[in-house]
Amino acid sequence: MQVVIRDEPSMNLLGLLLRTRLENATGPIEGEVEVVAGAMHVALRFRGDAVEVMRGDSRTGEPPKHRARIEGTLSALLDCARGRGVVRNFVTRAIRVGGDPRLLFRFARALGTL
């Protein structure tokens, strides 16, 4: 997937961490997903085989309204991104999701989590 990071020098570490996983992800996906780790927010705007990564705060302009949301500790998100401990992290609520389930499913599948 083609990844564009908006205002890369000021991108937070969560966005930078997600970059490689997104580059290896397979599309197409359409929609907006918000990822939250602790207090770090990233907004992902998927358009087919491309994704734009934005900081989820106001510094880089108004983030898009998201249709799905994933929130968790950095540790749990990293585990899930590797496809490890997915069930455990959901059961213990180390990872919480909300919004469009079909978009969440496609996002998880694209990242190889499922």
């Binding site: 890369e8 020098p9 000021s10 991108m11 937070n12 570490l13 930078l16 961490l17 970059r19 602790g38 207090a39 770090m40 900081r55 705060d57 510094r59």
Partner: peptide
């Protein structure tokens, strides 16, 4: 934090994002 950002390919990090380690 600048070391972490540089490791991820940011040549000249310009600032620590809110709530970042």
């Amino acid at each position: 934090w600048p070391a972490a950002k540089m490791l991820f390919g940011v040549a000249v990090p310009v600032g620590r994002a809110p709530a970042e380690p």
